[in-house]
């Protein structure tokens, strides 16, 4: 049997890999990809929990005509936001490159105190 914890551990692992990538890589593009990875890991967890609680009558809204889909809806919106984030993020990468001729995060430190 596959239990919820399989998915959770997998999600945690993917999230950790993404976080690791974001923290250690200096290429902005790779950092952005790492963010996408983390978002996906969260999505996986949400969908797994949705599957777990789909049979919970208490979560179905009163008078509802559908099974509980909260987790999947969350994942759906996260995908939408992630797409927007990727578009804006890559636009910023282009702007940064135009300014610095580099895509290294450690060279974009104008906010240094």
């Amino acid at each position: 049997m596959i239990h919820i914890q399989h998915y959770l551990v997998l999600g945690a692992t993917l999230f950790t890999i993404g976080a690791f990538g974001f923290l250690t890589r200096r290429n902005v593009l790779v950092a952005l990809m790492s963010i996408e990875l983390m978002l996906n890991a969260v999505n996986l967890t949400l969908v797994a929990f949705n599957r777990l609680h789909a049979g919970n009558l208490a979560l179905v809204a009163p008078g509802g005509r559908n099974l509980h889909h909260g987790g999947q809806m969350f994942a759906f919106f996260i995908i939408a936001v992630a797409a927007a984030e990727a578009a804006v993020g890559l636009a910023i990468v282009l702007a940064l490159y135009r300014l610095r001729r580099s895509v290294r995060t450690d060279e974009a430190d104008q906010l240094r105190g």
Partner: peptide, 16 residues
């Protein structure tokens, strides 16, 4: 797909 999220699986592929 294995979690009964067929629509999300499709969206995942299309969007990502």
């Amino acid at each position: 797909l294995s979690l009964s999220a067929e629509f999300l699986a499709a969206v995942q592929l299309l969007v990502y």
